[in-house]
């Protein structure tokens, strides 16, 4: 599986991570699933973790999830994944990411060092939930 992320959407993902720095930023990936999964737009989400924990954790409440899902339906798009930033850390999933991961979703993780977004990589949860598998990002 490959995920197509147009440059303008990737720029918005970078901007989300830089704006949230030094905390983690997050949002939904709206688009279509298929042989090539395509990101059409992104939807910024608030990080609801408590003060002091947002540098290395993010949380989206069920109420915010529902609001995002209804927005996707309104746009006639699907939620195809989640993006989040790892401030001053590698763009690979942590054990905590795996424990909380949803199947089917693409997880785009962006490294943000010193407030500057460096690179994004995308990951999918394995069917048995044991690990993440990288999915290539196609930019255009």
């Amino acid at each position: 599986m490959t995920i197509l992320v147009p440059p303008e959407q990737l720029a918005l993902i970078y901007a989300n991570g830089e704006k949230a720095y030094p905390d983690e930023g997050a949002g939904f990936l709206f688009g279509h699933d298929g042989e090539v999964r395509q990101v059409i737009s992104i939807y910024d989400l608030p990080n609801s973790r408590e003060d002091g924990a947002r540098h290395d954790r993010f949380l989206v409440t069920p109420e915010d999830y529902l609001e995002g899902e209804l927005k996707a339906e309104e746009l006639k798009l699907d939620i195809i994944g989640i993006f989040h930033s790892h401030p001053d850390s590698k763009n690979v999933p942590s054990e905590y990411d795996r424990e909380w991961a949803q199947p089917f979703f693409s997880y785009i993780i962006t490294s943000v060092y010193n407030g500057k977004a460096i690179e994004s990589r995308s990951w999918l949860l394995a069917e048995d939930r044991s690990k993440f598998i990288e999915e290539p990002i196609q930019r255009n």
């Binding site: 983690e24 290395d56 954790r57 069920p62 529902l66 790892h86 401030p87 999933p93 905590y96 909380w100």
Partner: peptide, 12 residues
């Protein structure tokens, strides 16, 4: 009845 996931993650 709705199943609604909480979404969470983090670098650590």
């Amino acid at each position: 009845l709705r199943i609604i996931p909480s979404i969470a993650g983090g670098s650590l």
